[in-house]
Deep mutational scan, measured.
Amino acid sequence: MIFPGATVRVTNVDDTYYRFEGLVQRVSDGKAAVLFENGNWDKLVTFRLSELEAVK
């Protein structure tokens, strides 16, 4: 189960963010908004829950 605050990895091989890890900001309607941070940039991207896996 994916909840806000969880760290997730993108599993969709066709996505630009494949294998990126980010922090879930919100979850609704089968989608999750994931925040990616890297140095001087932040990006908030929405994914279907089926495209994400929780990082242990």
Rank of each mutant, 00 (worst) to 15 (best):
residue 36 F to V: 04
residue 16 T to E: 14
residue 40 N to T: 12
residue 11 T to Q: 05
residue 1 M to R: 12
residue 33 A to T: 15
residue 50 S to D: 14
residue 43 K to R: 11
residue 50 S to W: 13
residue 19 R to K: 11
residue 42 D to T: 15
residue 30 G to C: 07
residue 11 T to P: 02
residue 17 Y to D: 02
residue 43 K to N: 10
residue 17 Y to N: 04
residue 12 N to D: 06
residue 46 T to E: 15
residue 36 F to S: 00
residue 18 Y to K: 02
residue 14 D to A: 11
residue 10 V to H: 01
residue 48 R to Y: 15
residue 1 M to A: 11
residue 35 L to S: 06
residue 20 F to P: 01
residue 56 K to G: 12
residue 28 S to R: 10
residue 14 D to V: 08
residue 5 G to Q: 03
residue 16 T to F: 14
residue 45 V to A: 05
residue 46 T to Q: 10
residue 40 N to Q: 11
residue 9 R to L: 06
residue 27 V to A: 03
residue 4 P to V: 13
residue 42 D to F: 15
residue 47 F to W: 01
residue 20 F to D: 04
residue 33 A to D: 15
residue 52 L to P: 00
residue 29 D to K: 08
residue 3 F to N: 06
residue 39 G to W: 08
residue 28 S to A: 12
residue 43 K to Q: 11
residue 48 R to K: 14
residue 15 D to N: 15
residue 27 V to E: 02
residue 16 T to M: 14
residue 19 R to C: 13
residue 37 E to C: 15
residue 13 V to H: 08
residue 45 V to G: 04
residue 25 Q to E: 07
residue 50 S to C: 11
residue 42 D to L: 15
residue 45 V to T: 04
residue 39 G to Y: 07
residue 33 A to S: 12
residue 38 N to D: 11
residue 30 G to R: 04
residue 37 E to D: 09
residue 39 G to H: 09
residue 50 S to A: 09
residue 4 P to G: 03
residue 32 A to D: 01
residue 8 V to M: 01
residue 11 T to A: 06
residue 20 F to Y: 11
residue 1 M to Y: 10
residue 11 T to W: 04
residue 21 E to T: 12
residue 34 V to H: 01
residue 51 E to Q: 05
residue 8 V to L: 00
residue 7 T to E: 05
residue 46 T to D: 12
residue 20 F to V: 07
residue 35 L to Y: 10
residue 22 G to W: 03
residue 18 Y to A: 04
residue 47 F to V: 06
residue 5 G to M: 03
residue 38 N to Q: 11
residue 20 F to H: 12
residue 6 A to H: 06
residue 44 L to W: 07
residue 5 G to H: 03
residue 6 A to P: 01
residue 7 T to G: 04
residue 22 G to R: 00
residue 47 F to L: 07
residue 6 A to V: 14
residue 41 W to Q: 11
residue 49 L to G: 02
residue 11 T to Y: 03
residue 3 F to W: 09
residue 26 R to A: 14
residue 21 E to P: 04
residue 53 E to W: 04
residue 43 K to D: 09
residue 31 K to C: 13
residue 2 I to M: 04
residue 24 V to C: 05
residue 23 L to M: 10
residue 27 V to G: 00
residue 21 E to W: 07
residue 14 D to Y: 12
residue 41 W to C: 15
residue 5 G to F: 04
residue 12 N to E: 04
residue 28 S to P: 01
residue 9 R to H: 04
residue 50 S to G: 07
residue 34 V to G: 00
residue 29 D to A: 09
residue 36 F to N: 00
residue 42 D to E: 14
residue 8 V to R: 00
residue 18 Y to H: 05
residue 17 Y to L: 08
residue 6 A to S: 10
residue 46 T to I: 14
residue 21 E to D: 04
residue 41 W to N: 10
residue 42 D to C: 15
residue 42 D to M: 15
residue 25 Q to M: 15
residue 21 E to Q: 10
residue 1 M to K: 11
residue 16 T to V: 14
residue 8 V to Y: 00
residue 16 T to N: 09
residue 7 T to H: 10
residue 19 R to F: 08
residue 23 L to V: 15
residue 43 K to I: 15
residue 33 A to V: 15
residue 22 G to K: 00
residue 34 V to Y: 01
residue 42 D to Y: 15
residue 9 R to M: 08
residue 10 V to S: 02
residue 36 F to G: 01
residue 34 V to L: 03
residue 3 F to S: 08
residue 30 G to P: 01
residue 32 A to Y: 05
residue 9 R to E: 02
residue 22 G to N: 00
